[in-house]
């Protein structure tokens, strides 16, 4: 299945792009998607931590992704 990945803040600098289309096997979780990203973008390990939003809502590690989901990489926010 196809995942639309969006990169923000520091992750955008590290990925060198603001979005990417990522192939992922059916039934995979956010946790597994993170592992895949880590392989594609080794420099992501320099980020302490980041959250993930699926279709504009925060999702935890066990969340199961579906085809055409939009997954955003959310480094620690600093608004306000």
């Amino acid at each position: 299945m196809k995942i639309h990945a969006l990169f923000f803040g520091m992750s955008k600098d590290l990925a060198g792009q603001s979005k990417a289309s990522v192939e992922l096997e059916e039934g995979k979780t956010v946790k597994e998607f993170r592992e895949l990203l880590q392989q594609k973008y080794p420099s992501f390990s320099t980020m302490d931590t980041y959250a993930v939003a699926v279709n504009e809502t925060y999702a935890d590690e066990e969340f199961v992704l579906s085809d055409k989901d939009t997954v955003a990489i959310i480094p620690p926010v600093s608004g306000g």
Partner: peptide, 20 residues
């Protein structure tokens, strides 16, 4: 709220809250 602040200094820039 997914908003990120980047600070620019005389000698560089940094993403606030990120700890690379």
């Amino acid at each position: 709220v997914p908003i990120w602040k980047k600070e620019f200094f005389e000698d560089g820039e940094v993403w606030v809250n990120a700890h690379p």
